[in-house]
Design a binder for these strands. Structure first.
Length: 585
RNA sequence: GCGCUCGUAGCUCAACCGGAUAGAGCAACGGCCUUCUAAGCCGUAGGUCGCAGGUUCGAGUCCUGCCGGGCGCGCCA
């Protein structure tokens, strides 16, 4: 409908250019928007306002001329000039209601673009270090990333979801040592567990599995393990130096077995994360290993490429990337004097790798605490010869959990944090997925556990699902009464639905495709969540004021047709958000 | 200190590329109702969009400064 109106305006403008009212080189940007107030009709345009200056006449006058030049349309009942020079369009009920039939025809596809008609996009999200279970902070990134990806797919793009597995860093080594030490404890040895080690119970479990699969193969005397190790912090030393020394010692004493222990930790936790996300309704096309970037030579190749382009320099034995050439605060080390490449070097290689895989666009979903990295990564991309605009970074703020008005304390120390799994167990997958994306991603959010669990209309998830279930319920009741829904008759009788609530409902339904489109392109799932809440509200209002199961068959079928169309949109929208659309509650 | 980000009703949040009288839901207040689905429905009130300038036909939205909150500022990952 918007396109139709834009077409009418375009025709009018062409006529005005022909008669000299507008300059021949006029480049009109025709914006047709939904009106906020029903008194302003159904759609409005501000072209007269934007073109008034160039046309050197006042906006209302120009608006009048545009109106006069508008071609006739059987879909428009009248136009009005209002305010400073808006042109308001009132459309016929028949054309407004046509969307109902479209919804029923297209079903699940309603609102979605032609599949795979758009560019290839990669969305990388969560990518938490596999050193422990996901916590509630990761949950928001997971829900947001998954929904953003699904929305892009609905907008026609070819989407690949990817998890970057940080399996190469020091944190992983600390995990390996933690697992090994717990394993030694289980073999009856006792010593002070390093304060910087991973304390969570899951480390003990991994140690147990290690023992089950390998017996005592990795047993070594604790006195030898800790011999001459620089003291831990509680003993007056440095916890970082202490754990580093232990890592070195573990590698020396275990030899080739070190990798077995290391992989036991990595695979166990990664498996857990994969299962956790799977149960959260999130599935990846690719789990990309950081280690593979070193083994396949991408890191070296990326550095060579930067070298060849003249962006690397040496200082005090370290190799630096001159990121200040691209607006960064300071230059960054990519290779230390000891020959070790930095994490940033892996990141450069990773992004090079992404673009080499042919993605038109690369989206990174990061925790908000990583915002400082955007500049340097974009700098690297540009230095490698790619357009940095092709990388889109979306930041996700942490969520703060509340139980009623009381804040839930979380501590990442000593492994007592609230895990995503615990959250899912408590409030359920649907509420989790919905609540996480109901606020703008870069906004702090309060997550009320009690509200998420409540079965009342205050709970938006319940409220929307209930609207869906209500339609199902009415159809069941209909059947119990020995009747059935006649779609054809319903569609033919839609014009009988001329109350305000019904018109509002249809108007709201008509906005679904653009809501979806905008939510996808702006990476703003929360607008879809809000839309569904509004649609459910409109439907509940309708349901409360109009009885469905009435004797007048024509009217009954018209109302049911409208309701089934609402149900279709609710189901489509909920599915995109990763929330189920139950038939009864 | 420098950088990024946020600041909208008592609370939690919206506001479609800069558009018309800034909207919902809770809470508050007033009324109605006992139903095809489950305490529901209707209405009222509530605002200097952090503050001050600027840009223009028009600013919550863009620019500058200030105030306040969050985060970042390692050869860590």
């Amino acid at each position: 409908m918007k396109a139709h109106i834009a077409e009418l305006i375009n025709t009018a403008l062409t006529a005005l250019i022909a008669d000299g009212t507008l300059a021949a080189d006029t480049q009109p940007n025709i914006l047709v928007e939904n009106t906020r107030d029903k008194a302003h009709g159904d759609f409005a345009t501000n072209v007269a306002l934007t073109l008034a200056k160039a046309a050197r006449c006042n906006p209302r006058e120009l608006a009048q001329k545009i109106c006069n030049a508008l071609p006739a349309s059987d879909k428009v009942t009248k136009t009005e000039i209002a305010g400073p020079g808006f042109i308001n369009f009132f459309i016929t009920q028949a054309s407004a209601y046509a969307v109902v039939e479209t919804i029923l025809e297209q079903g699940k596809a309603f609102g979605r673009a032609q599949p795979n008609s758009g560019p290839r996009v990669q969305v990388e999200f969560v990518s938490a270090n596999p050193t422990g279970p996901l916590h509630v902070g990761h949950g928001r990134g997971a829900a947001y990333g998954a929904t953003a990806a699904d929305l892009l797919e609905a907008a026609g793009m070819q989407v690949e979801r990817e998890y970057y597995v940080n399996d190469a860093g020091r944190q992983m080594s600390i995990l390996a040592v933690s697992v090994w030490l717990r394993y030694l404890e289980q073999l009856g040895q006792s010593f002070n567990f390093p304060s910087n080690g991973y304390q969570g119970e899951y480390v003990n479990e991994i140690a147990q599995w290690l023992m089950r699969d390998h017996g005592e193969a990795f047993n070594r005397p604790a006195v030898e393990v800790f011999a001459d190790i620089t003291p831990d912090e509680p003993q007056g030393g440095d916890k970082e130096l202490h754990i580093d020394a232990l890592i070195e010692r573990a590698q020396a004493m275990l030899g080739d077995d070190y990798e077995t222990v290391f992989n036991a930790g990595l695979n166990s936790i990664l498996g857990d994360i994969r299962e956790d996300l799977g149960e959260f309704g999130i599935h990846y096309q690719e789990w990309f290993s950081e280690r593979s970037l070193t083994s396949n030579g991408d890191v070296d190749r990326a550095l060579e490429k930067l070298q060849a382009r003249g962006y690397l320099f040496e200082q005090e034995g370290n190799l630096w990337f001159r990121s200040t050439d691209f607006g960064d605060d300071k230059d960054r080390v990519v290779k230390r004097a000891n020959g070790q490449t930095t994490y940033f070097a892996s990141d450069i290689a990773y992004h090079m790798n992404k673009f080499e895989r042919g993605f038109d666009q690369v989206v990174n979903i990061w925790g908000a605490d990583h915002h400082g990295y955007i500049t340097r990564v974009k700098a690297a991309i540009q230095a490698l010869g790619y357009d940095p605009e092709r990388l889109i970074v979306k930041l996700v703020q942490f969520a703060i959990l509340y139980r009623g008005s009381e804040r839930v304390q979380m501590s990442t120390r000593s492994g007592s944090f609230v895990t995503l799994r615990e959250l899912r167990d408590e409030v359920g997958k649907d509420a989790c997925r919905f609540f996480y994306v109901t606020r703008k991603a870069d906004q702090h959010m309060d997550f009320d556990l009690d509200l998420a669990k409540s079965e009342s209309k205050d709970n938006p998830v319940f409220y929307i699902q209930y609207a869906h279930a209500r339609v199902c319920s009415v159809l069941r009741k209909l059947e119990e009464d020995g009747l059935s829904w006649d779609k054809t008759q319903g569609l033919a009788a839609l014009q009988r639905l001329d109350s305000e609530v019904e018109k509002d409902l249809v108007t709201q339904m008509g906005k679904y495709p653009e809501t979806l489109h905008n939510a996808a392109l702006n990476y703003e799932p929360h607008t879809l969540a809000n839309y569904l809440k509004d649609l459910a509200g409109d439907f509940h209002a309708y349901y409360n004021t109009n009885k469905m199961l009435i004797d007048d068959a024509e009217l009954r079928n018209a109302r049911l047709t409208l309701s089934v169309a609402v149900r279709q949109i609710l189901a489509n929208g909920l599915t995109l958000l990763g929330v189920s659309a139950p038939e009864q509650m």
